[in-house]
Computed example of a mutant assay.
Amino acid sequence: MTRPAETASGAPPRARVFFALWPTAAIARRLHKEGERVHTATGGRRMRRDTLHLTLAFIGDIPRERLDDLRAAADKVAFPPFTLQLDRIAGWRHNHIVWVGATEVPAELESLVSQLNAALAAGGFPVERRKFAAHVTLLRNARGELAASELDPSIVWPVGEFVLVESDLRPEGAQYTVVATWPCVGGARD
């Protein structure tokens, strides 16, 4: 049996990962523009356009050898294409985050998250127990209050895939790399 490469500390290499919906360039630009717009009122640290996403399941730090187990869990998920309408912008005072989200979460998205969590749990991964909150974080460390309001016009996001992302934490901010993609039913696999 071959052992995986070890880090300088002698521990197996690890990966910090999560599953997400990843926006197209056009949707990321619009999300980024909304972050820019509210930044003047709330302050805080804007998320870079290339890091904007909607988290489906945060896995966290795992041994790199378990990445294949994550892929196998995600392979069990089947979902039709759907449209996500991001129509609300608000702030969470408790964690100083400004976000955009959906007033009504599509049933297809709820099903996708439910299937993914069930497959992850069956694979021995921890899953979030709180109710899923479909949102995209625009700002962190926001200082001002931002009351919930309608996003006009709303952001219409056609969803046809979900991804597994690796997060590399650096002093200048997290760097994200999409490591695998799962298309909707009838879509082509990367």
Results as ranks from 00 to 15, higher is better:
Thr55Ser: 14
Ala78Glu: 01
Val100Thr: 13
Lys131Asn: 04
Leu116Gln: 05
Glu150Met: 09
Ala147His: 13
His53Pro: 06
Gly91Lys: 02
Val77Ser: 02
Glu108Leu: 06
Asp87Ala: 10
His96Ser: 11
Ile89Leu: 09
Asp68Cys: 04
Arg71Asn: 06
Pro80Ile: 00
Leu86Pro: 01
Ala147Ile: 08
Lys131His: 09
Glu150Cys: 01
Val77Asn: 01
Asn117Glu: 10
Arg129Asp: 04
Ala73Tyr: 09
Lys131Ile: 02
Thr103Tyr: 02
Leu138Gln: 04
Gly144Met: 10
Thr103Ala: 15
Gly123Pro: 13
Asp68His: 14
Arg140Asp: 03
His96Leu: 10
Asn117Arg: 15
Asn141His: 11
Ala142Trp: 04
Val98Tyr: 02
Asn117Tyr: 10
Arg64Thr: 11
Leu120Met: 15
Arg140Phe: 11
His53Gln: 07
Glu145Phe: 10
Leu109Ala: 11
Thr103Asn: 07
Arg66Ile: 13
His94Asn: 13
Leu116Met: 09
Asp75Lys: 13
Gly144Asp: 09
Phe82Pro: 06
Leu109His: 12
Arg143Ala: 06
Gly60Lys: 08
Leu54His: 09
Ala122Phe: 05
Arg140Val: 02
Ile62His: 04
Arg130Gln: 13
Arg143Met: 12
Leu138Ala: 04
Trp92Cys: 05
Leu138Tyr: 01
Leu52Ser: 10
Asp50Ile: 04
Ile89Asn: 12
Val136Ser: 12
His96Gly: 01
Ala72Met: 09
Leu109Phe: 00
Leu138Val: 03
Trp99Tyr: 14
Pro63Tyr: 03
Ala118Tyr: 01
Asp61Ile: 10
Leu56Met: 05
Asp61Glu: 14
Gly60Ser: 10
Ala119Ser: 12
Glu110Tyr: 05
Leu84Arg: 05
Val127Ile: 11
Ala147Tyr: 08
Ala73Met: 10
His135Asp: 08
Trp92Gln: 03
Gln85Pro: 00
His96Met: 09
Ala133Met: 13
Ala78Gln: 13
Ile62Lys: 12
Asn141Gln: 11
Leu109Ile: 07
Asn95Phe: 13
Leu120Ile: 13
Thr51Val: 07
Val127Thr: 15
Phe132Ile: 06
Asn117Gln: 08
Ala147Met: 09
Asp68Ala: 15
His53Gly: 09
Val113Tyr: 04
Val105Leu: 01
Asp61Ser: 14
Asp68Thr: 14
His96Asn: 08
Pro80Trp: 00
Ala90Pro: 05
Pro63Ala: 09
Asp50Glu: 14
Gly91His: 03
Ile89Trp: 12
His53Ser: 14
Arg64Val: 05
Ala90Thr: 11
Gln85Trp: 06
Ser114Gln: 14
Gly60Tyr: 12
Thr83Cys: 06
Phe132Glu: 00
Arg130Ala: 12
Ala119Met: 01
Arg88Phe: 08
Glu65Leu: 06
Gly60Asp: 04
Ser149Leu: 08
Lys131Arg: 15
Phe79Lys: 00
Val113Trp: 02
Ile59Trp: 05
Asn117Trp: 12
Ala57Tyr: 03
Pro80Gln: 02
Ala118Val: 03
Trp99Met: 15
Leu84Trp: 03
Arg93Ala: 09
Ala74Asn: 07
Leu146Cys: 08
Arg140Ala: 09
Ser149Gly: 07
Trp99Asp: 10
Leu109Glu: 04
Ala73Thr: 01
Ala78Ile: 00
His135Ile: 11
Val136Met: 11
His53Ile: 08
Glu104Ile: 13
Phe125Ile: 07
Ile97Glu: 05
